[in-house]
Measured scan of single mutants.
Amino acid sequence: HHGSGALAALHADGPHAGLPVTRSDARVLIFNDWEERKRSEPWLRLDMSDKAIFRRYPHLR
């Protein structure tokens, strides 16, 4: 199991509170979210491209 239990660094406060600090933090969040959702949506594709990251977390651009 590759990303399970990996912890992402999140901004503690300010405008980005609760959001990932780096792209690799964002990838951890996206992976964990996908892993949760694919139980009920097995067709869901995992997209951890930069484009997917920016779409979801525009502050990382």
Rank of each mutant, 00 (worst) to 15 (best):
N32P: 00
W43R: 08
D47Y: 04
L44F: 10
R27C: 13
S4T: 13
I30N: 00
M48A: 05
A12S: 13
F54W: 09
E36G: 09
K51M: 11
H16M: 10
D33A: 07
F54Q: 04
D25A: 06
R45Y: 08
S49Q: 04
K51W: 12
H59M: 00
S40K: 09
H16Y: 15
P58G: 02
L60K: 00
S4E: 13
V28R: 10
M48Y: 07
H16N: 13
R23F: 13
H1W: 14
K38W: 02
H2K: 13
L10P: 05
E35C: 14
A6S: 14
I30A: 01
P58E: 02
R27V: 06
G18W: 03
T22V: 05
L10F: 06
H16W: 15
W34C: 00
R39S: 12
P42N: 03
A8R: 03
K38Y: 11
R55A: 11
P42Q: 06
A26N: 00
A12Q: 15
A6C: 15
K51I: 15
R27Y: 06
R55I: 13
H59K: 00
W34D: 15
H59L: 00
P20L: 05
D47I: 03
S24V: 11
W43L: 11
I53W: 00
D47V: 03
H2M: 13
P42E: 03
A9Q: 11
L44H: 07
L10R: 06
W43F: 08
R23V: 15
R55D: 15
I30E: 00
A52V: 06
S24E: 15
A17P: 03
D33P: 01
R55F: 12
G3D: 12
G18P: 04
Y57F: 09
A6F: 14
W34Q: 00
A12R: 08
R23L: 15
L46P: 03
G3W: 12
D47N: 05
R23S: 11
D25G: 03
L29V: 09
S40F: 11
A12K: 14
W43V: 04
D25Q: 06
S40G: 12
K38F: 11
V28H: 06
R56L: 13
L10I: 09
L19S: 03
H59N: 02
R37T: 03
S24P: 04
D33R: 09
A8L: 09
L7I: 15
A52T: 04
L44D: 02
D50T: 05
D50M: 06
R45M: 09
A6V: 10
G5A: 15
V28M: 07
F54I: 09
F31R: 07
L44K: 04
R27H: 03
L46Y: 12
A52E: 15
S4Y: 07
H16R: 04
D47R: 02
L29M: 10
Y57Q: 15
G14M: 03
M48K: 01
R23M: 14
V28F: 05
H59C: 00
V28N: 05
T22S: 08
A9C: 15
G14H: 04
G5I: 12
G18F: 04
L60V: 00
R45N: 10
A9D: 11
G5E: 09
R37P: 00
L46I: 04
A12C: 14
D50A: 08
G5M: 12
H1T: 08
S24L: 08
G5R: 15
A26H: 00
H1K: 12
L60C: 00
A12Y: 08
P20E: 08
V28P: 01
L44C: 07
S49K: 00
L7W: 07
R61M: 14
G18H: 05
A17T: 07
R61I: 13
M48H: 08
G3F: 11
W43C: 12
L44E: 12
I53P: 00
L19W: 04
R61T: 11
A17W: 06
G3L: 14
P58M: 02
R61E: 10
H2P: 12
H2Y: 09
F31H: 07
R55N: 15
R61W: 15
D33W: 09
I53H: 02
G5Y: 10
M48E: 03
L10E: 04
W34I: 01
H59I: 00
L7E: 05
A8E: 04
A9H: 14
A26I: 01
D33G: 04
P42D: 02
H16G: 03
K51P: 13
A8S: 05
D50Q: 05
L7M: 13
H16I: 04
P42M: 11
R61Q: 12
F31W: 07
A17G: 04
D47A: 02
R23P: 12
T22A: 06
R61G: 06
K51N: 13
V21K: 14
R55W: 06
R56N: 06
A8D: 03
I53R: 00
A6E: 10
A8W: 06
K38E: 02
E35D: 12
G18K: 06
D50N: 13
P20N: 12
R56D: 03
H16D: 06
L44V: 08
K51C: 14
D47M: 02
R55M: 13
L29S: 02
S4D: 11
E35W: 15
V28G: 04
R56M: 08
T22G: 07
S49P: 00
S49F: 02
T22M: 04
S49W: 01
H1Y: 14
L19E: 04
L19D: 05
R39V: 10
G18R: 05
S4V: 15
H59A: 01
H11R: 05
R23H: 10
R56G: 02
G14R: 04
P20D: 00
E36T: 10
G5S: 11
R27Q: 07
S24K: 13
R39K: 14
G14K: 03
D50W: 12
L29F: 04
E36V: 11
R56C: 07
A17V: 09
R61D: 12
A26V: 02
M48F: 08
L46E: 02
Y57T: 01
H11S: 03
G5Q: 15
D25P: 12
H11I: 07
R27E: 07
H59S: 02
R55H: 08
L60M: 01
I30C: 02
R56K: 14
E36M: 08
V21E: 06
W34T: 04
D25W: 04
R55E: 14
G3K: 10
G3H: 11
R37V: 02
R45A: 14
W34F: 11
H11Q: 03
A52G: 13
D13N: 08
R45D: 08
A6K: 14
P20T: 01
P20I: 10
A52F: 06
T22D: 05
L46V: 06
P58N: 03
A17N: 08
R39P: 12
R61K: 13
R39M: 09
L29K: 03
E41M: 10
D50H: 07
P42V: 05
R56S: 06
D33S: 04
G3R: 08
L60A: 00
P42C: 06
A52M: 07
R45G: 06
E36D: 12
L7H: 09
A9G: 07
L7D: 07
L7A: 09
R45Q: 09
G14S: 04
P20H: 02
L46M: 12
S4C: 14
R55Y: 09
S24G: 13
R39Y: 12
G18V: 03
A52P: 00
W43S: 08
A17L: 06
L46F: 03
Y57H: 01
L7G: 13
S24N: 13
A6D: 10
H11A: 05
S24W: 14
N32T: 11
D13V: 10
A26S: 02
P15K: 06
S40P: 03
P58D: 01
H1S: 13
R39I: 09
D13E: 09
D33K: 06
E36N: 08
H2W: 12
A17C: 07
